[in-house]
Design a protein around this nucleic acid. Sequence first.
DNA 1: ATATAACCGAGACGGTACGTCCCGTCTTAGC
DNA 2: GCTAAGACGGGACGTACCGTCTCGGTTATAT
Lengths: 195, 195, 195, 195
Amino acid sequence: MVSDHNKVGRPRSEEARAAILHAVDDLLVELGYSAVTLKGIAERAGVSRQTVYRWWSTKAEILLEASAADARQELEVPAHEDPADDLAAYLGALITFLTTSDAGIAYRALVGEAQHDPAVSELLRGSDPIGESAAAVIDRALPGDSLLPSMPEATAQLVGPVFFWILCGRDPHALDPRQLAVDFVRQAAHTPAQA
Amino acid sequence: MVSDHNKVGRPRSEEARAAILHAVDDLLVELGYSAVTLKGIAERAGVSRQTVYRWWSTKAEILLEASAADARQELEVPAHEDPADDLAAYLGALITFLTTSDAGIAYRALVGEAQHDPAVSELLRGSDPIGESAAAVIDRALPGDSLLPSMPEATAQLVGPVFFWILCGRDPHALDPRQLAVDFVRQAAHTPAQA
Amino acid sequence: MVSDHNKVGRPRSEEARAAILHAVDDLLVELGYSAVTLKGIAERAGVSRQTVYRWWSTKAEILLEASAADARQELEVPAHEDPADDLAAYLGALITFLTTSDAGIAYRALVGEAQHDPAVSELLRGSDPIGESAAAVIDRALPGDSLLPSMPEATAQLVGPVFFWILCGRDPHALDPRQLAVDFVRQAAHTPAQA
Amino acid sequence: MVSDHNKVGRPRSEEARAAILHAVDDLLVELGYSAVTLKGIAERAGVSRQTVYRWWSTKAEILLEASAADARQELEVPAHEDPADDLAAYLGALITFLTTSDAGIAYRALVGEAQHDPAVSELLRGSDPIGESAAAVIDRALPGDSLLPSMPEATAQLVGPVFFWILCGRDPHALDPRQLAVDFVRQAAHTPAQA
DNA sequence: ATATAACCGAGACGGTACGTCCCGTCTTAGC
DNA sequence: GCTAAGACGGGACGTACCGTCTCGGTTATAT
């Protein structure tokens, strides 16, 4: 099969899809999450409202699709030899992501919405750029470690402080990624195997 | 000063105030944050819409006033002799607060809204039950510690993992407060004094 | 052109339009002008409020559209041979219109509103059932008369007394259309041609 | 009796009364009838809302009290020898009153309101500056005339054309008071005595 | 002198309509 | 069958004014 549309009738407009994803990105930055409306997205994208509804149900879904790939990419950091350096670089990237990146603003908005709306919470559970990137970097920096059996908790211990700090609206410049990384390494090193 | 109203004109109705705060609490639990409306609050409270607007600007403000005292109270835990026990008990209370308490649901909704709305973020910065309670319990469990110079960061390290875990919608039963407390104590014990 | 809608998008609902016009008519008679509200019209018509606002700006506009055709029809009277009879029949119809007809009540309400609101005044100037019908009947009863150069003033002289009498709330049964018609004919007969 | 208040308790404040009457006059001219509110009157007068409600029920009542005396005075015109001159002078004053005088604007607003509200209609029937002034001037210009038995109708015939013309929003400069007066005199002269 | 009574201002109260915005759905015509 | 356009019923928004009420305070007469 050479095409995956329904084979009958007009195919889905790829231009419309892209226009919508760009529009939602732009509007989020310009107006903030709560001022983004499906009506506004459609108008900005030069697309009819029905076309948006045909492919997505909520603005959260559109936003997730528009930002997920960017998020994943922005949280990939080059490797460092020293584990603490590696983790510190990652935490620095995480701080930048959560505070200044468009995709990060989208991500925070989605986490925020998830606190009000179980559907968004479910959506997010299927797409967890922070958890995945943190697991990857821990695995790289501290390979073969006894942490692995409890990796999800370890990722929470790594990113949790930064996440809490920023979502509570504190000044991100007061955070010291290197210190956090060092603390994490020390703590992890002594964690006994969970056999 | 014994009364804080303007002393001229009809005094504010304490009944209306209480009815509104109760209504917003009830509605949050029944309908969820995004389905709570100022109109609905007024109707549930048996109060005119204007009376709500006279004293609050947004549902976030009402919700904060309705839940702040409860939150503070629910995050106070009895002391334990062993520092790790003390911190573990606190983290257990925090998990319960964030996942099952009405005030905790309100708090999560507010943190969520703060990601969309800078005004709510500002509001929350002035009322931080988790940060305050965490600082208090650290100070109690690890007194005179070298942590004190960087207490805000220390609180983030203590509560961050739990906060991240729950706000991302993961299963709270998978968390082990005791293990998190032990990790925190070990990490704190080796933190060098910050000159 | 066979249809006057924009030809793109869903066409205007003729049912909604008719329901609104009927509703405003009914409500005017039941409640009186000042108790008619756009909200009430929409509810009575079983229509959303926005649908009313989409097509009209004020209740005056709706009322005018709802009553103009009726007014015009009610002020057409069969011809009489004798000019005084013709004019008297017209004045009788005018009295009935202004005091008992639904369209007449609407018309009086609009003239009343025009005293408060220049927009309504402007609206009425573009739709003047009394002036037009009076001009027609004068032209029919006293054809080729020297009145024609000053027809608007002549119509005012014909209908003015009735109009004043009724709008000031006096008893319409005390009016004698025949006498007024005779007076008007005599006065008109002697009016010199206006060169 | 030297004072007509209840003789016990604080007497009515004459300053408040005057301030209210001035305020309603000013506001009518500045904003137009429909934008005049009891709230606005009270604020402009520097008076509490309750004080207004204590003495008047509606803005129509206040407006009537504020303008009736002025209306009566503005419609008194010096006598002329020639009856047609006398009536023409009166009609000129009437046109000026209805189109440019503050009291006349108030009067038109009240007549307008009377078309919506029977209470205002009743109110006006008890205070009819145009009818009274017209009757007086007819009696003066055409004394002992056979018109007297039907004076109310005669006043309607005199003022009706002007009243209709202006309330329908036509250009008052197009009116010729002298011509109207002449027509009225001719018509009246031939009216047979009403047995 | 001191009640008592009616007034006054200020301003909160429940209520209701305003006009606007967005929701999600629908009904067209056109491609 | 998808698309753009746009009307539809619905409902919350925040504001304004309604008429009423409850305060503290003022100014009279009547004891």
